[in-house]
Write a protein that binds this DNA or RNA. Sequence first.
DNA 1: TAGTGGTCTAGACCACGCT
DNA 2: GCGTGGTCTAGACCACTAA
Lengths: 211, 211
Amino acid sequence: MSDSGKTKYYVLMEELKKEIISGEKKPGDRLPSENQLSEVYHISRHTVRKALSILEQEGYIEAEHGRGTFVSRKAGRKKGSGNIAVITTYLSDYIFPRLIQGIDQVLTENGYSIIIKNTGNSRIKESRCLEEILEKDVDGLIIEPSKSEILCGHRGLYDKLDFYKIPYVFIQGYYAQMKSKPHIRLDDCMGGYLVTKYLLDLGHEHILGIF
Amino acid sequence: MSDSGKTKYYVLMEELKKEIISGEKKPGDRLPSENQLSEVYHISRHTVRKALSILEQEGYIEAEHGRGTFVSRKAGRKKGSGNIAVITTYLSDYIFPRLIQGIDQVLTENGYSIIIKNTGNSRIKESRCLEEILEKDVDGLIIEPSKSEILCGHRGLYDKLDFYKIPYVFIQGYYAQMKSKPHIRLDDCMGGYLVTKYLLDLGHEHILGIF
DNA sequence: TAGTGGTCTAGACCACGCT
DNA sequence: GCGTGGTCTAGACCACTAA
């Protein structure tokens, strides 16, 4: 029964973390109160608080004054860079500002940020963008192909995305060689919202589909 | 002499933080021991530790068992991420699309990328944006203050930018408390181009000026 | 009003680094 | 051996939430 070698708060912290990760305690569930934990584990309340403070710091739980301590609703999310790259042909023309607004909305809701690039509809610049993106670590990519409907001149870069398991979605067009990759046409803010939700699903579930 | 309204650990924490940011305590310097602090401030050692734990968590100090507590040396920062954050109030309205285009132009020329965020002109969202930015590592920040000309409600976050030596430039307004920080008004693509050049100069040469 | 988390005290013992 | 930070106890009072 001995938890040798470890500190008391560390033992309790790991026990609670295990319950959360295993699913025994689900997001939104309430933990026993600090007094209850101190009784059950035969440790002082201060030691309980030390254990809880670590879990709170790491994002597993959230304490609410007067209400209790709860399992965080976004627990278990692995941490990538938290950045999604968005590559369009132009930044300020047509519907792109609103498109980006829609994308930003759903990304912010999910704790991601946009890294924005534009190609000026030039395939050379698209290559450069993709190379930059591959150097930084991004969690996903939304790209409007430049001069679509034509051959993709840098297939190798997209292969690299596949290799690194970076999910990507085409918008407003696709390359003939890559019909099997997800792509979508959209024309407003809502479209940006939806395509981004889809991308995040890709990242979380690693399931591919075709529109 | 009363520091009314705040908790004791918070008062001590801010006092120490001020000394570090102002340069009174320099990186590598040793802080008074926990016992000394508890005597000088007439508070218990536990309360001192609470204050120190926050500073340690935020990266200002580092405690070494048996030796003492020291101001963090990490003012030097790591290699650049190549990302510059741009925080505006809105994404698709007014001149922002063209502004961003101008910013992107000079950043791309210099091998940087934009991470874009928007606040919806809400100071609460501005806080969240700044916290996110601080977690990722960005090399610089261009920010349009939300509800400018009013008091800055989260001065601490900007202090942190200073501490980590992340250069930032205000556009379209500034907080009254921070008149000495660089700011600029601009109204088009060219403005975005110029302000960004200026930011990069800040980052490269660490020279401050006032517009 | 009862229960919760947040702050704070005044102790204690331990593990570590130095000299 | 001495001072340092790290762990831990057994209390106390407060602020907040909900029944």
